[in-house]
Nucleic acid binder design. Structure first.
Length: 435
RNA sequence: GCGGCUAUAGUUCAGCGGCAGAACGCCUGACUGUGGCUCAGGAUGUCGUGGGUUCGAUCCCCACUAGCCGCCCCA
């Protein structure tokens, strides 16, 4: 029989790595809570039309990367329909916003999500077919302030805080404005015109892009092409007055709170719904060419595109897989040692050891409970020490003497010192030197 | 979807058309209640899967699968 394996582009997350994933989730939830975001959980699959209309029929994501299937009717009373595993979460959140009439509250909705997304792409380092995103959306009727540049700046400031609290050092924030829905076609036309005379001298990829998707020429990294690209028209010069003022206000607010950023007029994003502010946080360690930790932007027309009321918004999605890779590359990911390893000396002490472990592990109103690894009485003492040294900060010896006297032997691996501790004081002793 | 590189022990990787290797890790003992160092010994495995060429294939050829890199795109 052939052995079954995780399918291409999917993977199992195992300890100790899952500890890092959990830590990232915890830090993210804590930051979101302080900025007064609430969690939303949307279904993992949706009607295919949601993504076609929301993300854009012509985008690569929709045209070739979605896991879509025909869900057959099972009875007269049930309709068949085309369903799709979500390739991103913004469309689902906006769908929920419309469906539950969250705009009717008049309040600004601040929602975050953490969960798996699915795209049928060629897997690479930092790119998987099932991958995890942590994202958030700020959306509401214009009267709630959802359109304000202050929202953009606040979201960016929150992201800087989140990355800092995660311990990611050396991130770079790039921002740009892609203008309103009417600005962009005008700019693309200007780009085509400007490319015509020079594209013959540029790389083959650019010659193809100039025809298929001129905005992508801005992404070209071939050194020879750079002078030509620098000479091309900039989208900043093709924005209408209100988009210009909006972007300037975002920059002013970021300057005021000291979040560093670079304006990158070449930053273009591939999802149709983006308008005005777009951004990306990049990092160079551990990610190879997939160096974007997160990306996002404003989507002032998305709600209408999927049949809802006017509801301007801004959001982002972080690649959690990429945060993990970056933190691992920074070596700030070390497994948490147990507070103690209990070593019963002889099988006769096994039962007493379990009882002791239960006591130490148990949480009380004033103490969270200790992290305890339990050995085995059949191990020779040497083996217990070797095992304990790998997983715990201290070893607690529980032999016949200790069980009878109630005075336990505790050795601290970091200092090498050994002490006798009364059983009644053991919890306090182990908890006190918790760092 | 297209092009390229890769796949051997738990891990990182050598290797060769003729007995499957190293380092680290793991297990046992020296050492019966004191680890890290040392020494002695031990187990590593469908050489990614399936075909083909050959007296003989882990090695050469083909296909498939998977990972990585580039295109495309994106978190």
């Amino acid at each position: 029989m052939t052995t079954l394996k995780a399918v291409r582009g999917t993977r199992d997350l195992l300890p100790p790595e899952t500890e890092l994933w959990n830590r990232i989730d915890t830090v993210a939830r804590s930051v979101f809570a302080r900025y007064n975001f609430g969690e939303i959980r949307t279904p993992i699959f949706e009607d295919t039309a949601l993504f076609a209309r929301g993300v854009g029929e012509e985008t690569d994501i929709v045209s070739k990367e979605m896991y879509t299937w025909d869900d057959k009717a099972r009875a007269q009373s049930e309709k068949g329909q085309s369903l799709t595993l979500r390739p991103e979460n913004t469309a689902g959140v906006v769908r929920a916003y419309i469906e539950h009439k969250l705009g009717e509250t008049g309040q600004l909705q601040k929602l975050y999500y953490i969960g798996p997304q699915f795209r049928r792409e060629r897997p690479m380092k930092g790119r998987f077919r099932q991958f995890y995103q942590i994202g958030a959306e700020v959306i509401g009727p214009a009267s709630s302030g959802s359109e304000s540049p202050l929202r953009d700046a606040e979201v960016l400031e929150m992201l800087a805080t989140l990355l800092d609290e995660l311990g990611i050092t050396g991130w770079v924030l790039k921002i740009n404005s892609v203008g309103s829905a009417s600005d962009r076609p005008r700019y693309i036309e200007a780009l085509r015109e400007a490319l015509k005379p020079v594209v013959g001298q540029m790389c083959e990829d650019c010659q193809r892009r100039a025809v298929t998707n001129p905005l992508r020429v801005l992404d070209c990294k071939v050194p020879h092409d750079q002078p030509y690209i620098d000479a091309l028209p900039k989208i900043a010069d093709h924005l209408d007055e209100s988009s210009k003022a909006h972007f300037a206000a975002v920059c002013t607010a970021l300057d005021a709170c000291g979040v560093p950023y670079v304006r990158d007029h070449r930053l273009v994003r591939g999802l149709d719904y983006y308008t005005r502010t777009t951004f990306e946080f990049t990092h160079d360690a551990g990610l190879g060419t997939q160096n974007a930790l997160l990306g996002g932007g404003r989507y002032d027309g998305l709600s209408e595109a999927i049949g809802g009321p006017k509801a301007p918004g801004i959001g982002f999605a972080m690649g959690e897989d990429r945060l993990v890779l970056t933190l691992q590359a920074q070596k700030s990911a070390k497994a948490q040692l147990a507070d103690a390893y209990i070593a019963p000396l002889g099988e006769a002490q096994n039962a007493a050891a379990l009882e002791l472990a239960r006591e130490l592990r148990r949480a009380t109103p004033d103490r969270p409970g200790l992290k305890i690894e339990l050995g085995d009485g059949t191990f020779r003492l040497k083996k217990s020490f070797e095992a304990a040294d790998k997983v715990a900060r201290k070893i607690v010896l529980l032999g016949e003497d200790e069980v009878n006297s109630g005075i336990l032997t505790v050795k601290d691996f970091s200092t090498g010192t050994q002490s006798k501790i009364a059983r009644s004081e053991l919890t306090a002793h182990l908890a006190s030197s918790n760092k």
